[in-house]
Design a protein around this nucleic acid. Sequence first.
RNA 1: GGCCCGGUGGCAGAGUGGCCAUGCAGCGGACUGCAAAUCCGCGUACGUCGGUUCGAUUCCGGCCCGGGCCUCCA
Length: 464
Amino acid sequence: MAGELVFYNTLTRRKERFAPVDPRRVRMYVCGPTVYQRIHVGNARPLVVFDVLFRLLRRVFGEEHVVYVRNITDIDDKIIEQAKKNGEPIEALTARTTRDFHRDAEALSCLPPTHEPKATEHLAEMIALVEVLLAKGHAYEADGHVLFHVPSMPAYGRLSGRDREEQIAGARVEVAPFKKDPADFVLWKPSSPDQPGWESPWGRGRPGWHIECSAMAERYLGPLPFDIHAGGQDLIFPHHENEIAQSCCARGTELMARFWLHNGFVQMAGEKMAKSLGNVVRVAEVLERYPGEVVRLWLLSAHYRQPLECSEAALSEAREALRRWYRVLADAGIGAEDPGESEGRVAEALSDDLATPAAIAVLHGLATEANKARSAGEREALARLLKGEAGLLGLLHADPVAWLRHAAPARALSDETIERMLAERREARKNRDFARADAIRAELEAAGIVLKDRPDGRTDWERR
RNA sequence: GGCCCGGUGGCAGAGUGGCCAUGCAGCGGACUGCAAAUCCGCGUACGUCGGUUCGAUUCCGGCCCGGGCCUCCA
């Protein structure tokens, strides 16, 4: 097993050796979804990438020694708007969207996090945190709001690498008249009677966007700093910068988290996939055409910090790779229940800043070795190794034969019909009536069924 | 305008100061009744101009091009 983990830390902009504060309690936090719409494949990237990180940490430090927190943001102005637009209660919208989110995450083979706190269930922690910031002079009340005063924190801007001068020069920041400084951001804001709100020392209101993560991260991962905080690159500023400001100023620590990992964007035609650009593809849409495992492999096919292009070509390439691996398992008779074996080859690849492309190359290498194996025993051992190594990536857990038959959507022919035609073809071949046998094969092929005659007389088939 | 990434063979995508990524596609061969699958073999790849070096795709600088953040956003 790889002894050393190295991750790229956004905070220092270089790769650093990772060692947790407490190896018996490795703590990671990943920003979760705001539940007002189903997630798109861009949202799915951090979900899958950091699921691999979770699996790797569990492997290295032990399953019981890793705490993974991923929040559910169920109070937010976008949620309020969406509920109004749908004409449904906020709770109905957030409950349904949360359920759909869990469905998508499961389809992508993501392990459930250790804790999945909801913002609405942690108002007390948020209010307490705001009170501390007020008491320490890092926040002030103005016009019913509570604002974080950015100039009160000299180190502000460290994560995103920008200083206050640049902030102001940006000039695109909307400056509310009651702000003491243009960079100040909301910790708490008042709610009108028709908006959801909670009683607080500053009247009935609701939390700002950033405070929930500070409150919930500390609630489940404290004391600060914890080990890893992760999310998409677009969260570096302002979200993570502001989380750091809140947490560090409240607790007087230099760091909120020691490592900050950020994934690159999924792109469509070379452009970031984003709701604001209107080029999003929902996970659910892709799952209608590809197994979740294909989507997962595709999301891992580029290094997590690089951009990843979403295209049919990329998705079908991932499907072909999985077919190749599942054929190895099927040929060796490895079933879904076989746990496989691992020599830590994938773990070693991932140890270098989650190098998933290198890990995938390991799997391809094992598949080639297995295909070259001279004996059945050797082949089976290598296939079992392939399966075991793939486990750390959350891949190859399905039944191989079934997967190959159902990796593409069923078209005209049912499994039963196919089996019946194969029986007829077997008869024809036995009688050396190859014209008839080939006609049946052509008919099946037209329906997306590809045959594979084996030396022992049986015939395997796949849907493509 | 400020800050940050990246430009690798037909495509996707790693990586390294001198030797191999890996996969897909393509070409040739083996196997097969024919296929499919599989195996074997085959490709003057590193944006551009300079610099450092015995030697640079890899280090440094300029330039060109693309993407991102600075505003809700994974």
